[in-house]
């Protein structure tokens, strides 16, 4: 069992859970994920590790409550527990050893790009983070990223930072400087746009993929993605891939496999909640 140490609402629908997982806290590296299984009848879901504290024996998970399983997780309070956490899984991020890198984070993906920025700055790499959200209250991890270097915030509605998409700010930084790598984590359309933006600049671009996954150890093949025309399993070959080679259209399409059933699960659990309230 993994005790919830703290739970913080970072933005609407986005929660940071600090959870006891001593072994994983000790050995996890940037870019790696865990499979979380809340308890009996729960789904197994992959979550990238946002941070860890080896001394306290905790890992940080940032969760966007989009479906029934993620809602169930963010509903946990300090003192509650998650039954199973397995990991760390996936290949660690390939970090530069020198130079200047850009970390692009969109929405909840900003929490996933954070450990990459942290790793880079520990390697002595200059980090510029470009992070965005629809509006001000959806921008997360700004302060944490500022400790790793310069941060440019973009909002779609202009309520905070620059008005516009992260790709516009990215283009300017690419034009301005000698950039060795771009790391991008966020919604599929954002990662695709980032990859398209960096392609003409010839800058190595790494994206972190989050496809449907069951075991996280290569066994199910549900997380298969096409990279450079070949099928790869995001869990063991990734989750980070060369953004210039990923078939994003297929990834986005496959992520929609369970959309109808997910709505059914949410509707069903809402119905259960109402029954609970009327009693």
């Amino acid at each position: 069992m993994h005790e919830i140490i703290s739970s913080t609402l970072l933005a609407p629908e986005v929660t940071r859970l600090v959870v006891a997982a001593p072994r994983i806290a000790q050995i996890r590296q940037a870019g790696q994920f865990v499979i979380v299984h809340k308890g009996p009848r729960a789904e197994r879901i992959p979550l990238t590790i946002a941070d860890s504290d080896a001394e306290a024996g905790t890992i940080t998970l940032v969760i966007q409550a989009v479906g029934k399983s993620t809602r169930d997780l963010v509903a946990l309070h300090p003192g509650d527990a998650i039954q199973d956490i397995a990991g760390p899984l996936g290949k660690p991020t390939e970090l530069l050893d020198a130079g200047h890198a850009i970390c692009v984070g969109g929405g909840v993906g900003t929490a996933v790009v954070y450990p990459i920025a942290q790793g880079l700055s520990r390697h002595g790499v200059r980090v510029t983070s470009i992070i965005g959200g629809r509006s001000r209250n959806l921008v997360i991890y700004e302060d944490e990223l500022r400790r790793q270097g310069e941060v440019i915030v973009c909002t779609d509605d202009g309520s905070y930072g620059r008005h516009g998409f992260v790709t516009q700010a990215l283009e300017e930084v690419l034009i301005a400087g000698d950039i060795q790598a771009v790391y991008a984590v966020g919604p599929v359309p954002m990662m695709r746009a980032v990859a398209e933006m960096t392609r003409p600049f010839g800058v190595h671009t790494i994206v972190s993929l989050n496809p449907v996954m069951i075991d996280g150890t290569g066994m199910c093949g549900g997380c298969r993605v096409t990279v450079g025309g070949e099928t790869r399993f995001a869990c063991v070959d990734g989750p980070e891939c060369d953004g210039h080679l990923v078939n994003f259209a297929e990834l986005a399409d496959r992520l929609g496999t369970y959309r109808v059933l997910e709505r059914e699960a949410v509707a069903c659990s809402d119905a259960t909640c109402k029954i609970g309230k009327s009693q």
């Binding site: 009848r41 789904e43 169930d72 066994m219 093949g221 298969r224 929609g256 496999t257 059933l261 699960a265």
Partner: peptide, 28 residues
Amino acid sequence: NLKGVYSANEYLTRVNLLAAYTFPEADT
């Protein structure tokens, strides 16, 4: 990689280990 193609491992794991045949009672 079309939607609706499963490996047997994934199909059976969903149904057996995660009891997807009882969905939405089970979450998978």
